[in-house]
Simulated assay, not measured.
Amino acid sequence: MKDHEYKKDPIKSHHVILYVDTENIVPGNEDNCCWLGWPKNDHQKNKDWYTYVDPGEYITWIGLSISSPNDIVNITSISHEKKSNVFGKTILHGNGESPEKVIGTVQNDTDDENEQYMISFTVSNGNNGGLRNGSYRVDPEIRVRPPGSGG
């Protein structure tokens, strides 16, 4: 068998990075202190953020402090809220590592569907390990591209 006869498609994946102003965040001001995508767009709310994916792709959600290299943003879960459930599970749990992240796979039988979901996360002070003001939530959306639309 020649090299060009056997080629495996690389696994497609997306990283969704939640940027958090860990110094100023308190429950209720998530839209002011965290956002998806860089640079920050002051005119876009988190609920209006879309991640475009294809069936079978992996998504990894990770958090990043923009305030302190010592603060840890732990993505603790991804929860289905409304519309289609493109992961086939109501809740995807974090991996328990530090920093914690969540990995999900878009089901192969989904296409041209949307899902509203909730990112739940905590902020820990890296110096003493204590949580900062409890848990937080933001609610973006996933859009699965229809077949043949590219990506």
Rank of each mutant, 00 (worst) to 15 (best):
W49R: 14
N128Q: 08
I142C: 06
D9C: 10
S120T: 13
P147G: 02
Y58W: 13
K40Y: 00
K8N: 11
T110Q: 15
G126Y: 09
P39S: 00
G56D: 01
S120V: 07
G56S: 01
P69Y: 14
T60D: 08
K8I: 12
V20S: 08
N95M: 06
H4T: 14
F87H: 02
S77N: 09
E57K: 11
L64S: 15
S149P: 05
V26S: 14
G88T: 14
W61I: 09
V102N: 05
L36T: 03
I91H: 05
W49K: 15
E141H: 07
G151S: 13
S77C: 12
G94V: 06
D42G: 06
I78W: 01
V123H: 02
G63A: 03
I62N: 05
Y117A: 07
G130H: 04
K83V: 13
Y6S: 10
M1K: 15
V26D: 11
S77V: 07
P55E: 05
P99D: 10
G37V: 00
P55D: 01
W61G: 06
S65N: 08
N41P: 00
P140F: 00
V123T: 02
K8Q: 11
I17C: 12
S124Y: 11
V20T: 01
R137G: 09
N128P: 11
E100D: 11
S77F: 02
G130C: 05
E115L: 05
V106Q: 08
N128I: 09
D71E: 02
K40L: 02
S65M: 04
P10A: 07
V73D: 01
N41G: 04
V106L: 03
N29E: 12
Y19F: 15
K7G: 07
Q116F: 09
K7V: 14
T122K: 09
T51I: 10
H4G: 08
D21Q: 13
N128A: 06
N74K: 15
V73C: 03
R143W: 06
D3T: 13
N85G: 03
P146Y: 01
N41L: 08
I59H: 05
V106H: 02
P99S: 11
K83W: 10
P140T: 00
S98Y: 09
N46E: 01
N85T: 07
T76Y: 06
I66Q: 03
G126I: 04
I142Q: 09
